[in-house]
Amino acid sequence: MIDAALFSSALGALTPILFAALAGALCQRAGVFNISLEGTMLVGAFAGVAGSWYTGSVWLGVLIAVLTGTAYSLILAVGHVSFGGDAIVLGVAINLLAVGLTSFLIRTVFGTRGTFSDPALQGLDAVHLPLVRDIPFVGTVLSGHSVLVYLSWLAVVALAVLLYRHPWGLRLRGIGEREDAAASLGVSVTRYRYGVILAGGALCGLAGAQLALGNVTLFSENMTAGRGWIAVVAVMLGRALPYGVFAAAVLFGLAEAFGFRLQGVGLPQQATDAAPYVVTLLALFISSARIRRTREST
């Protein structure tokens, strides 16, 4: 029951979450609590499908998803950073807006309700990695995913480099820790926060593109189904560290894939649907218990 295909499907399942979690981690580091990941991902998914459908090119679809995600995240940037609105209120409203907007648009643009799919809709092709694909087990796990899956791994590394090796990373970590101190050294808190929120929007756009053009090739109302929230939790579980967030996303992806597999042995889908959430909650218990212990011992 635990075989290469399990891990392979886990990788596909976790990619949207990973992208969104990286967005959340980036924002977190600069002191922005971003819970609008869910909605931004949903808008990205819609834009990806619409873009791919109208241009006939899946690549343009992905690009449009990224641009739309970035533009959509402007709401949070302007509302929170420029106007000083509460990030939680805005986040909840942005998520609700995404549901309303995409449901509205699926009717006005595609003239349908619920789900839009069409055999002519271009999805992302699987990439078969040369050499790697021939390695037993590893090949099955690592090869044959969409380009965005590999891009998400690169994004993890890129985030680590940005945070710890680039001046921008130092500055935004500083902003997250003490914004007044950063401002007093001439670092524009506003500009960096806009940067992380918009970059986060682009990442959520990629998350949506992978969800709607990679994992499946369709758009359905509310298809993110809580993945953006899981990303918020993954940021917390991974302490906003790039590799920590990656590990948290992998844990979640494995739990989802494993739960899916359990259906094969007769467990109802609803029981296994809950598995990832329960696993994540348990992981949080364990990690927060460990932190409490180390805090007490020092």
Partner: peptide, 11 residues
Amino acid sequence: LIIFLAAATGL
């Protein structure tokens, strides 16, 4: 409406 209100109260 909520986004506007949140931004306005923040301001």
